[in-house]
Design a protein around this nucleic acid. Structure first.
Lengths: 219, 219
DNA sequence: CGGATTTTGTTCTCCCGTTCACAAACTCCT
DNA sequence: AGGAGTTTGTGAACGGGAGAACAAAATCCG
């Protein structure tokens, strides 16, 4: 389930606050979901709650981390050391969440050899060796859109079986390989779409703006 | 619909390739979706296709851009000039997609006054003035998790009605305000979950690894 | 010790999105 | 001009996830 990481974060937050036990309702609020949905999700992992009491926060957190596979550290390769790639390479929160930047790749001679957070940028041609050496199965693509597909092909060819794609392009991979896409422009465009709707709502009923808005904002 | 931006990108790609007309099947492949779904989505905007021919790529692209609201430029404020905030501030692809970095905010004295892509970082206290001055309705949060909520509160208080949240935290806002969340760790954890499953599939059937994998990879 | 209370785990229903499938509409070729 | 071939737009069936609701289980308190 795609919501397990959200629950994991909520649990970590509660642990930091010193909470020892929490009901599904508490967790649901912290994770921003419905409590019934949360209970159903957790029931897939097993019966880790106690009726009348709630969930042992620490224990549940371990079980979810175990389910996700975060009891081990996942080595990650980042391809494309542009603005975003550099930001990710320097991102400290990486290591605290079960991941480790094991390799940085680029083709620009100006970038090769530079050091980000203790890892040196290597040429993309060395990808296969590095994947093999560090047992990397997850690749992050932060290249320009036009080369994203061929980078993905090389990642897959080197043995990577999961790709996180930040490039503005649709990439296709063989079955058995997972791809997730994060696209800043698309997210912003979705927001813009809603923004436009908001401003149109007022324009459609001139003179009624205030009443309409008031109903929408505080129903 | 959240898929319109994807179609928009696919159409832009086809235009760059010099394609003048495309069938729903062509578009669906370029966008990575099912053709029936794409046709149904487009039918909500109106009848912009011609039976037996397909869609006029240029015309359709304009109609979708218009629907999303990209005929205007959206000024955006970025709060938090850490690694990620700096990367976004320098991101050139911003402007080409209907958005403009209108304000950069932080509270760190070392960052205030610095210039990213022609925009100077200002103190967060000036937020309301800048939002007002530039007519900003979209805010991007790239702060550490613990302060994300209060930054969001200040954004909303200043008149921002759409927030793109990169901070690893759940933020709550009044109804009428839209929030979208992008979380690197969660995406990676979802990939890790699938990775773990992949490696377990082999372990469950020792001796059959090769056959099983072969079936999964090339069915 | 037993009833009241809390909270989980699960069943059931509903609703929305996806996909199939086909008629209508348009082009092309003879 | 007319039939063959394409492709859109949409009605209908399907599937799955979301939430309400409730029984089972545990604690608390008199």
């Amino acid at each position: 389930m795609a919501r397990l990481p959200v629950y994991l974060r909520a649990l970590t937050l509660l642990i930091e606050r010193g909470v020892a036990t929490a009901s599904s309702e508490d967790l649901a609020v912290a994770a921003g979901v419905n409590s019934a949905k949360l209970r159903k999700d957790l029931s897939y992992l097993g019966s880790y709650g106690t009726r009348g009491v709630g969930y042992d926060v620490e224990y549940l957190r371990y079980q979810i981390a175990r389910e996700i596979g975060l009891t081990q550290d996942w080595p990650v390769a980042i391809v494309g050391l542009g603005n975003l790639g550099q930001a990710l390479a320097n991102y400290a929160g990486f290591g605290t969440r079960g991941f480790r930047v094991a390799a940085l790749l680029d083709v620009d001679p100006d970038r090769i050899g530079r050091d980000f957070g203790g890892v040196v940028v290597r040429h993309l041609d060395e990808l296969a060796d590095l994947v093999d050496e560090h047992d990397i199965s997850i690749g992050v693509v932060t290249t320009p859109g036009p080369v994203a597909q061929q980078v993905a092909d090389r990642l897959v060819g080197s043995g990577v079986t999961s790709i996180l794609n930040f490039a503005p392009a649709v990439i296709t991979v063989p079955s058995g390989v997972d791809v997730r896409k994060v696209d800043l422009s698309i997210e912003l465009q979705i927001l813009a779409y809603h923004e436009q709707r908001k401003s149109m709502a007022g324009a459609l009923h001139p003179g009624l703006d205030i009443d309409v808005v008031a109903q929408v904002v505080a129903p």
